[in-house]
Amino acid sequence: MRNIIIIAAAAENNALGKDNDLLWHLPDDFKRFKAITTGHTIIMGRKTFESFPKPLPNRFHVIITRDRSYSTPHEKCAIVHSLKEAYALTQNEETVYIIGGGEIYAQAMADANLLELTRVHATYEADTFFPEIDPTQWELLKEELHPADERHAVPFTYQTYTRRQKSR
């Protein structure tokens, strides 16, 4: 079975970002994101892609944009114009990661079978939000609290959700 995995960090109020930037600095979460996604294809919206200084190393980037004239000089990137096109382009991949932003997460929630969420234990003013996790659709498999420390101003919890099996 193909794995479509959503990976995100969201605040208690589901805030993801503001003005195309993250709202917090969590080095251990960055390390986890890198460890999980390295070697895989990552699917994202154009604004998420443009928030990076350069493409992330050792990952193939599929960028979704409505702009038919959009292009990028980077060879480890492909441009598509819908999530459906992104899935078609990556159909031979066993695992793909959806990495944002808010609109792409909302569209992908129906297709994903795993959520790797970092829940940031604070609330923020934002312009981009993670969709609500419906407990009838998703089951929390595991969680691991990371307390605030000298490198992390706020505590956060790594949470892994799996899609609930439909009862017959």
Rank of each mutant, 00 (worst) to 15 (best):
A108L: 12
E143Y: 07
L115D: 00
D111Y: 13
E116F: 04
E116W: 00
P147M: 07
D134Y: 08
A126T: 11
P147E: 11
I133H: 06
F129D: 02
L141A: 06
E116P: 00
E139R: 13
W138H: 09
Q137W: 03
N113T: 05
L140H: 09
T118Q: 04
P131C: 00
D134L: 07
Y105G: 03
K142Q: 15
A110P: 01
Y105V: 11
H121G: 03
Q137I: 13
P147H: 10
E116Q: 09
K142Y: 10
E116Y: 10
E143I: 02
T128R: 12
E144F: 06
E139I: 12
L140E: 06
E125Y: 09
M109N: 12
L140S: 07
L117E: 02
I133M: 05
I104S: 04
I104Q: 04
E143V: 02
E125S: 15
E143A: 05
L117P: 02
A106M: 08
L140I: 11
E125H: 14
T136C: 06
L145F: 13
M109C: 12
W138T: 06
E143D: 14
V120Y: 02
L140N: 09
L145Y: 13
V120S: 01
W138Q: 04
N113P: 03
I104A: 07
E116V: 08
F129Q: 04
T136G: 01
A126P: 07
